[in-house]
């Protein structure tokens, strides 16, 4: 059984209000059976400095990725991870983290690849929890291993591979990187030079909508009206569109995937996790440089 939804007024205008919880709601529900709080950060040690009482840590890099191949863990690996974290298949999972939930959204997207039904984000993540003056704990929670079943990952609906992106050029494509990366002035995100690519620029016809535009100053998601102005009026997305989002390794675009899918209600949104670190180093794929989306190559 899943835990009741947060009835907060702010969430009601979103397509899937049940995908978000507020800090106040979470503080009041920490002891509810069937609710597991998960922290996922960019910094692998941040959880150890203090976390929401009872929260377990999942590291996107060392736990959600396959240690050898560039891929996510498989069904067995995910089941083992969930068992070790004490998460059951029908648990309500609330994920939060640093940097406006950038990595938390990535973890949520990976949970979604395995069809975990009730997985939510804490609106505002760590920053909001702290700004509200709520407490942290440094105690590691006592985890009772679960019996999470092995469920095979389904990449067909919300994940896009390079070949699919190639075929998708000319259709709605959202590049969520910084304008400098989009235009080709740099191959890496500011301050992330270790995740480079051999060529700079963007996938032809992609619209540049930096991911952080969806977040307000306090790290929470912007209102439906503000998001509509950015993605519908601004980027021209329309209901019924098939949309692919990408960034550098698929984490920032997970944040955008969450916004488009759960807040604005687009039914067909895929995250291209290969993203620029794959596309920008691949042989013979089309690239556009400059600030404009550019034209699809003639076939």
């Amino acid at each position: 059984m899943t835990v009741a939804f947060d009835p907060a007024e702010k969430f009601r205008s979103y397509a899937r209000p049940e995908r978000l919880v507020s800090t106040g709601w979470l503080a009041a529900h920490l002891d509810v059976a069937g609710l597991v709080v998960v922290e996922t950060d960019e910094d692998v040690l941040l959880y150890e400095t203090g976390h929401i009482p009872g929260a377990v840590k999942i590291d996107w890099h060392t736990e959600l990725n396959d240690p050898v191949e560039r891929d996510y863990v498989d069904g067995t690996g995910f089941a083992e991870l969930m068992r070790a974290k004490g998460i059951k298949r029908d648990d309500t999972v609330v994920i939060y983290g640093d940097k406006s939930n950038w990595w938390a959204a990535y973890a949520l997207w990976v949970f979604s690849l395995f069809g975990h039904e009730d997985v939510r984000l804490l609106d505002g993540g760590r920053a909001k929890w702290e700004a509200d003056g709520r407490p942290y704990s440094t105690e590691h929670p006592n985890i009772e291993p679960s019996d999470y079943p092995v469920v095979e990952r389904d990449d067909s609906k919300i994940r896009a591979y390079k070949a699919e992106v190639l075929a998708h050029i000319g259709n709605p494509l959202i590049d969520v990187r910084s304008p400098e990366e989009f235009s080709g002035e740099r191959t890496t995100a500011p301050a992330y030079p270790e995740e480079g690519a051999l060529r700079a620029g963007h996938i032809p016809t992609a619209q540049n909508v930096p991911w952080a535009r969806a977040a307000a100053d306090d790290g929470t998601f912007k209102s439906t009206a503000e998001l509509d102005a950015i993605y519908r009026a601004g980027a021209g997305l329309e209901d019924g569109d098939s949309i692919i989002a990408y960034c550098r390794i698929g984490e920032r675009s997970s944040h955008t995937w969450f916004v488009l899918t759960h807040l604005l209600g687009f039914a067909d949104v895929r995250n291209y996790d290969g993203s620029w670190t794959e596309w920008g180093s691949a042989v013979r794929v089309p690239i556009v440089i400059g600030p404009e989306p550019g034209e699809a190559p003639r076939s």
Binding site: V44, L45, D59, H61, T62, P67, E194, E195
Partner: peptide, 11 residues
């Protein structure tokens, strides 16, 4: 390296 990931060790 395995604990924090090779990417982070590069820093």
């Amino acid at each position: 390296t395995a604990l924090v990931s090779p990417l982070r060790i590069r820093g």
